[in-house]
């Protein structure tokens, strides 16, 4: 579901107007982003953790042209699901 649908679903669940839900969502996202920028780990119970990890710089070789490139280090956001969520996922029927 995309952003809009998410807001609609939440609005009906909470019996709150969509505009309010939309604003709250925006503020929540903003707050989370700020915390992540501060390199903090955010944990949601029974859902998972968002953490910031550093990727070291590395030498990569282009397989075709054989040009060696030095990729600089960077910080990335990582999500790790909690075990409770993992178990819930096992229950759903899988068809592939």
């Amino acid at each position: 579901m995309n952003h809009k649908e998410l807001i609609a679903a939440m609005a009906t669940k909470m019996n709150a107007p969509k505009s309010m839900v939309s604003d709250l969502l925006e503020i929540t996202i903003k707050t989370c982003t700020e915390q992540l920028v501060d390199e903090k780990t955010i944990g949601f119970q029974s859902f998972g953790n968002f953490e910031v990890r550093k990727k070291e710089e590395r030498l990569s070789v282009h397989p075709a042209t054989q040009i060696r490139t030095l990729v600089p280090p960077k910080l990335v956001v990582n999500f790790k699901q909690s075990n409770i969520l993992k178990d819930k996922l096992k229950d759903i029927p899988h068809h592939e």
């Binding site: 929540t28 707050t31 989370c32 915390q35 501060d38 390199e39 903090k40 780990t41 955010i42 944990g43 949601f44 119970q45 953790n49 550093k54």
Partner: peptide, 11 residues
């Protein structure tokens, strides 16, 4: 690295 963990309560 700041290993500060923030709970959902703080958020």
């Amino acid at each position: 690295m700041n290993k500060d963990k923030i709970s959902s309560q703080e958020i």
